[in-house]
């Protein structure tokens, strides 16, 4: 139980987000109306993805320096979890766009960047899956994973800021200014981000443990 305190925090924070996210006061904005509440659910998906993919990057670098197969397993499972929350972010973002911008998808730098990032990570799985020899797979996948994270930074953080974008937080339209996020919304938004990130980490640890058990039993047999 002592080791699981952060899981409890994750659950409490997300539960608080669900309750407070619907009931607390939000600023009245044209076009957005009540959909502004999506901020508590759509945005934390991307925060979680960035965090868990950073964990993946970290373990890939570690794997390159110590040539440990375990790092490769951890990195790949983190990337898998990242794709789960990333897909949820894309789907919710698409739905939100339909009701505020009027289309499921617009050719926007942020949106296309997010889609390209997902494809880059899908290529990571294809690459990893195509190499049978374990040591080789670990090394090549780790190198590609570092490249993938750099591309993620470029496509999600840099390019959208350089051009005009409908998506808030880009093209000289900073995401955290007072009209986008007032002090009431911060009360829900920050716990939401922490809660969702921790929940994602929980799912990731489950995946890693399961994968390790799988490998151990396969080796023993």
């Amino acid at each position: 139980m002592k080791k699981n305190w952060w899981k409890i925090i994750a659950v409490l924070f997300v539960l608080y987000t669900i309750i407070a996210g619907f009931l607390f006061k939000v600023p009245a904005q044209p076009i957005l109306h009540e959909t502004i509440r999506n901020l508590y659910f759509h945005v934390p998906m991307w925060f979680s993805m960035m965090t868990i993919l950073f964990v993946s990057l970290w373990h890939s670098i570690k794997g390159l320096s110590n040539s440990n197969i375990e790092s490769d397993i951890v990195a790949s499972q983190a990337a898998h979890t990242g794709m789960l929350v990333g897909a949820l972010g894309l789907i919710t973002g698409s739905l939100w766009a339909k009701y505020t911008w009027g289309a499921w998808w617009v050719a926007d730098t942020k949106l296309n960047g997010a889609a390209i990032t997902m494809l880059i990570y899908l290529a990571y799985f294809v690459l990893r899956g195509s190499i049978d020899e374990e040591q080789k797979r670990a090394r090549i996948a780790a190198v590609y994973n570092i490249f993938a994270y750099v591309m993620l930074i470029v496509f999600l953080m840099i390019l959208p800021r350089l051009s005009d974008s409908l998506h808030p937080g880009n093209g000289g339209n900073p995401g955290f200014n007072q009209y986008d996020l007032d002090s009431n919304m911060r009360l829900v938004f920050y716990p939401a981000v922490i809660g969702w990130i921790l929940l994602t980490v929980w799912i990731f640890t489950l995946r890693v443990r399961l994968e390790k058990i799988k490998r151990k039993t396969l080796i023993d047999e």
């Binding site: 407070a20 009931l23 607390f24 009245a28 904005q29 109306h33 007032d182």
Partner: peptide, 22 residues
């Protein structure tokens, strides 16, 4: 619970334009 948390922050909203909310 909501009041308790809301009372911590002072919020000033100018209602010059009415935006339709639910």
């Amino acid at each position: 619970l909501g009041m308790l948390i809301l009372s911590v922050t002072a919020f000033a909203q100018d209602k010059c334009e009415r935006v339709e909310m639910a």
